[in-house]
């Protein structure tokens, strides 16, 4: 049992080293496409074309805070992170919690008196704000819900889409 544990620890540390060393980072596979909303119930999972975004934007730091090989650009972040080394994790879910308001997350936040980033966005908020924010700013790219992820049958029921075009509530008041 203990050797099994050691094996896992060793495997993990090798993995960590290979990701955290800058040389390895440059060789680290940058995904061409990522499946997002994997556990979506109301909206289907969908493929995010990472390669296309790299081609058109080029600057990793436009989307990622802690990028590989680029210095921190945001002046507010630079106050502390100007000389910070690239982090091992650059994916959104590496830092942004999928359950930002769960009792556990809130309790951990309250217990950690030293924490500076108290207003860190959850995963869903971070991704939507990043995507929709940029798409609005650039004036292209999808901004509607179903432009990225089509609704499931459950989602259609949730949004009562069968009622579309029915008389709005305010019409009765007039």
């Amino acid at each position: 049992m203990s050797s099994y544990k050691h094996l896992i620890v060793a495997a993990l540390s090798i993995g960590a080293i290979s990701v955290s060393s800058p040389a390895a980072l440059q060789c680290a596979p940058v995904p061409d496409s990522i499946t997002l909303n994997q556990n979506g119930k109301l909206f289907s999972p969908f493929t995010f074309n990472h390669a296309k975004h790299i081609q058109s934007i080029k600057e990793c730091a436009d989307c990622h805070h802690h990028t590989t090989g680029t210095l921190v650009l945001d002046p507010n972040c630079a106050r502390c992170h100007q000389n910070s080394s690239p982090t091992a994790v650059v994916s959104c879910k590496g830092c942004h919690s999928a359950t930002p308001f769960s009792p556990e997350t809130l309790a951990a936040k309250r217990a950690d008196k030293q924490r500076y980033h108290l207003d860190k966005m959850g995963l869903k908020g971070a991704m939507h704000q990043n995507c929709i924010g940029c798409h609005n700013k650039m004036g292209n790219g999808p901004t509607g819900c179903q432009d990225c992820h089509p609704r499931t049958t459950e989602g259609a029921a949730f949004y009562s889409t069968n009622r579309k075009g029915a008389k709005p509530a305010h019409a009765e008041e007039e």
């Binding site: 949730f158 949004y159 709005p168 509530a169």
Partner: peptide, 16 residues
């Protein structure tokens, strides 16, 4: 059930 679906933007025409 709502009077009209939750993705109907026409509801914004009036203050509710």
């Amino acid at each position: 059930e709502p009077d009209t679906s939750f993705d109907d933007p026409s509801v914004f025409e009036h203050d509710r």
